[in-house]
Nucleic acid binder design. Structure first.
Length: 428
RNA sequence: GACCCUUUCAUCUAGGGGCCAAGGAUGCUGCGUUUUCAACGCAGACACAGAGGUUCAAAUCCUCUAAGGGUCGCCA
């Protein structure tokens, strides 16, 4: 079983998708099950259901075998915690968190609650004080080899005595994650870089519970939006990228390109499964580069089947697909293409002295017979309207595409000739 | 403040003592093509963070310095 945790928020981030993607790819490669744990306990952010997350991931063709909701596992976490308590490997603690803004030197319990468990228990009983359950400090240094970051070893003082159960009875994310690994026997856990230093704590918890199976860890570098991560808090939201008109395939392509050795620049998820290698990932943080993503998006749109491309815009016509591809030059996202195609299919308007000529042309086209060749079409219009050819071409472009520039009209015309009367409409 | 990690063009990377006066891709600049913008084609500019070592030979190994990132909560 390969696992990865992700927040159960409506707005999944690029970094979250990154972890999920890597987990999924490696699970396909080694033909193991892929498990995603949804951290839906105690977060203030808007929650979303497992179905919502699953359907979002499905857009990316990521279909994990199992989605686990941590809120449904609560009793198991509590059971583990009480087991540790009864073995005196964990203890109740009355220490209240210091001011979060100025973290204390060590995260250990200051009042040596562990040494005075009877007294603590009594206080809790008599005064109903809020308390947490902490794991006992580790005896010795804990080290492991991260698949991306290399060897990590951390002294017991640094691990401290992490909280297992919070005062509201809910597990801490760290504890929940350690338990999830044990319950589902996870052999590889992919997570974000920022959790690297808490991993020894997780290992310590598992060891205390007598779990001996090895879990490999891979901590992915973060993808930053701006120059100095701190000042630019532009959220790299997946939903937003999709709304901007990026194809899921292009986003996947980008994520696998960044911080990775790649045999090609342009590829799809199934290709990537063939060559992806966790060990070649760079531990360096990555700067999000939208231009690269745009370029990839264009490539993926280009590679799409004509007819399926047109279905993204409510058509089912390979010619419309080709028409869209003609516009890839100036439009590299779905939404930009949509603006183009909408402009073509809506009535055109313009002001000034061109208005009269536009009207003439529109009427002529409406009444014209079906003409296959663009040249003949233009000749017909020149003869009928008496407008000189160069001028007519400019007007015709406006009447068809609603913009002064774009792909060559002779390329466009054969693709839209069946729709020409619908397209060449003019509203004063 | 403490601990850990990283450093090759603007960006993502190739490289693992000699095949490297450093290759590819994106972006940028110019030219071509185009009624037009873009795309496309061709050409061009742009990097081994710095200083010391080791070696016949260093982008590559070692040390220090600098810069970036991460962590030090009942956060996630």
């Amino acid at each position: 079983m390969f696992g990865s945790a992700l927040p159960a928020t409506v707005d999944l981030g690029l970094n979250d998708l990154h972890s999920v993607l890597i987990t999924y790819i490696v699970s396909r490669q080694r033909q193991e099950r892929c498990l995603l744990c949804l951290e839906d306990i105690g977060s203030e952010e808007t929650q979303s259901s497992d179905q919502e997350i699953a359907s979002l991931l499905k857009k990316f063709a990521i279909e994990p075998e199992q989605l686990l909701l941590q809120s449904e596992q609560k009793h198991r976490y509590q059971h583990f915690a009480h087991t540790l308590m009864s073995q005196r490997k964990a203890f109740a603690c009355l220490c209240v968190a210091e001011n979060p803004q100025t973290p204390s030197q060590d995260s250990l319990c200051h009042n040596s609650c562990f040494e005075h468990q009877e007294m603590v228990a009594q206080q809790i009983k008599e005064q109903k004080l809020p308390y947490v359950i902490r794991i006992k400090k580790a005896e010795e240094e804990i080290s492991f080899v991260d698949l991306i970051q290399g060897k990590v070893s951390v002294a017991p003082e640094r691990i401290g005595a992490p909280v297992l159960l919070r005062s509201d009875g809910n597990p801490s994310p760290l504890f929940a994650s350690a338990c999830d690994d044990m319950l589902s026997n996870t052999s590889l856990r992919v997570c974000a870089m920022r959790h690297l230093d808490s991993t020894p704590g997780e290992i310590h918890i598992k060891q205390s519970l007598g779990y001996t199976a090895k879990t490999d860890y891979a901590h992915l570098p973060a993808i930053h939006a701006g120059e100095a991560a701190a000042d630019d808090d532009t959220p790299l939201s997946i939903r937003q990228l999709l709304e901007e008109g990026f194809l899921p395939d292009a986003i996947i392509n980008y994520l696998l390109l960044a911080g990775n050795t790649h045999p090609a620049e342009h590829f799809t998820l199934p290709n990537a499964v063939a060559w992806f290698d966790l060990s070649t990932l760079s531990p360096d943080p990555i700067k999000f580069d939208k231009e690269t993503l745009q370029h990839l998006n264009r490539r993926h749109l280009e590679a799409m089947d004509d007819r399926s491309l047109s279905t993204l815009f409510g058509f089912a016509d390979a010619d419309i697909g080709r028409l869209l591809k003609l516009h890839l030059g100036e439009a590299d996202t779905i939404s930009a293409l949509e603006r183009r195609i909408k402009a073509i299919f809506s009535p055109k308007r313009c002001d000034g002295d061109t208005a009269g000529q536009m009207q003439t042309l529109a009427t002529l086209i409406c009444e014209a017979p079906m003409i296959d060749a663009f040249e003949d079409f233009v000749q017909y219009l020149v003869t009928q309207s008496g407008i000189e050819e160069a001028r007519l071409l400019t007007l015709l472009r406006l009447l068809i595409t609603a913009t002064p520039d774009g792909p060559r009209l002779e390329d466009i015309y054969p693709l839209i000739s069946p729709y020409i009367t619908e397209i060449a409409r003019y509203t004063p």
